[in-house]
Design a protein around this nucleic acid. Structure first.
Lengths: 352, 352
DNA sequence: TTTTAGCACTCTGACATATTGAGTGCTAAC
DNA sequence: GTTAGCACTCAATATGTCAGAGTGCTAAAA
């Protein structure tokens, strides 16, 4: 799709990108020549850079400044570099052994918790902001268990477990004169009859049966059975942004922080990236959120078969250490998805 | 304890504090005279200000600048002002009706969720950062229900409900050759025998009984019964700090953000403030966290009898709109604690 | 005795101006 | 095709000036 650069242009581009990533300052021909040991003189490099600028890979903040890679430049760099785990991250061994421990099948299983502790470590290792996302209610889930537990005099706690390992809970006040026994009985019946049935099916069935009941019953039943779990998103080390030079402008920083706080926009991005699978890299304005324009988002969806269970991601400045981040995320993608497939009950579409 | 200011000093101090809160800039004698309609001339006010400075209520950034209140000045101001809800916050009516809806006893009950939606609104109304804290496992809790639910082939989901409305859950892999039935039976027995008993008592009892069992059993039982819930802390609108002039210095902002991220330090503060009860105001360096020195924390513990269920708080710059924040938090203290006492099962210390 | 007016003084912040240096683009030589 | 040399540009820094806000002090007024 995109044209290919010749050997010399590529070496100049990649040196420029690497230099900018390392120093956060426009890099000039001299630096590229000296620090990266290119065998061309600064003058030649200047010529190449001028060409690269014309083709849209580099820019110029002002006449007498060095070059800065554009989004296109970063994109080309990312697409044409081959990153490898071993040389990238000195702590890669410790990440691997950490995963060995935490993904041990004998340890307690809670997706959000596992992902959180993993990404907490990754955030610390890479020095970028990590994201863990667990989407909200998904109708593809199947019921594993439904329990009603009386709490105090007039409350009932409903607990609903699905095959995705999700636990939904909700406490409901029973209206005056409500017969607790009846509803508990109904719950038991549901538990027995609807095991392994998709949640959406159960809802349909319940709606049909509820036609016969009175208003008060209906209301309470709705509350007990139809919980929606909100999507859950956790962020680690967002404070890093306050240290980075490209966010020294308070308004830029504020914009990013607001994106992190609202979460809805991020959720949508992750949703979109699920179908893509594998490691996605969105550089700068490649993502649709305005406040996130100065950032790059590297993300990985987690799937059990075709069911989306969650996503993990890393956010940093466009000037990100791609050579570290991408191998780490590739590695995580493999390990985590493997673990999910091995540990969670598989979801064959047979009983749909 | 602290000396009392005469009428005139007080009016100058309070005008200075109010002016500084409003404008975030050192206030001079002229401003105090004009904008606050004091009947003294700027010269007199200067004299008073010089006195107040000597006594430690005000400072001077440099010779020809206006005055800034010290922490002591703010403290005196807060202690000696009488704030009232109605005039303070124009949206107070909407807060009140929001609470009417969300604290309706017929709506589903989940402390963390309720507090979160309330403080989310409060953060938006006051334009400060709001905190909601639910402490971790508390041994004062009593068991309401214990359920074991088989998940898939070899997993067991343990769900433990306490009278504080807390739900603990944990999924455990059963070792090879483990007799599921036996352990479910054990769970049922516990459920029947230990209802309304304090968690700590149950643990002791279980420890005693476990002496008789083999290693594999012990391990699994531990995992099933002894969950610890981590403290849960939620923050709303932390991004506000990026907009405030006193945090335009990136390192100051970063320090605050790190405090918000680590959470442990904040947790300790909230723990300390529980015994104090009611609305606590910690101005500037009155709190022990270095990074939070330029901030004021206003907090309220939530108690069911003598049991600490959670806390809510607001964090802003020392230059905070105390006349808004304090009445709001007082109001919240009353409404939320009242709701908790009415809604949650009361905890009499009889079965201790 | 308390309050106020007046005045000299100080310091910041804004603005204008010079200076430096990094880096470019171009041309001519290798 | 590559490189050395040179004139040029522009940001960043330093220096200097000036206005304005605000103080502290003293002496007069209440």
């Amino acid at each position: 799709m995109s044209e290919t650069l010749d050997e010399r242009s590529w070496s100049v581009l990649s040196a420029t990108v690497n230099g900018y990533i390392r120093m956060a300052v426009p890099v000039g021909s001299r630096v590229v020549n000296r620090l990266f040991g290119l065998s061309y003189s600064p003058a030649t490099i200047r010529n190449v850079m001028a060409d690269l600028e014309e083709e849209g890979y580099l820019t110029h903040p002002h006449t007498s400044a060095g070059r800065i890679p554009t989004a296109k430049g970063f994109r080309y760099f990312v697409d044409n570099s081959s990153f490898s785990m071993q040389e990238a991250l000195p702590e890669s061994a410790s990440l691997s052994s950490f995963l060995d421990v935490i993904l041990d099948e004998s340890s307690p299983l809670d997706l959000l918790e596992v992902l959180s502790s993993v990404m907490n470590l990754v955030a610390r290792m890479t020095n970028y902001t990590a994201i863990v996302l667990e989407p909200g209610t998904r109708n593809e889930e199947r019921l594993l268990s439904f329990e009603l537990i009386p709490v105090g005099e007039r409350h009932l706690l409903a607990i609903l477990v699905t095959d995705a390992g999700a636990v939904y809970k909700r406490t409901v006040l029973l209206p005056e004169g409500f017969r607790t026994k009846e509803i508990v009985f109904l719950g038991d019946a549901l538990n027995a009859s609807s095991r392994n049935v998709h949640l959406s099916k159960i809802r349909e069935k319940l709606f049909d049966e509820m036609e016969l009941l009175g208003e008060a019953y209906r209301e309470t039943l709705q509350q007990l059975f139809f919980h929606n779990r909100m999507p859950e998103m956790k962020l680690f080390r967002t404070s890093r942004f306050a240290e980075m030079p490209e966010f020294s402008d308070a308004s830029v920083l504020h914009a990013v922080m607001e994106v992190f706080e609202e979460k809805i926009a991020l959720l949508e991005i992750f949703e979109d990236l699920v179908r893509q699978g594998g490691v996605s890299v969105q550089i700068g304005s490649e993502n649709p959120i305005p406040g996130l324009k100065p950032c790059t988002l590297v993300s990985v969806p987690l799937l059990n078969g075709s069911v989306w269970l969650g996503s993990v991601g890393l956010v940093g400045p466009v000037r990100m250490q791609y050579d570290q981040v991408i191998p780490v995320m590739q590695y995580l993608s493999v390990r985590l998805n493997h673990w999910i497939q091995k540990t969670l009950p598989s979801q064959s579409p047979s009983t749909t």
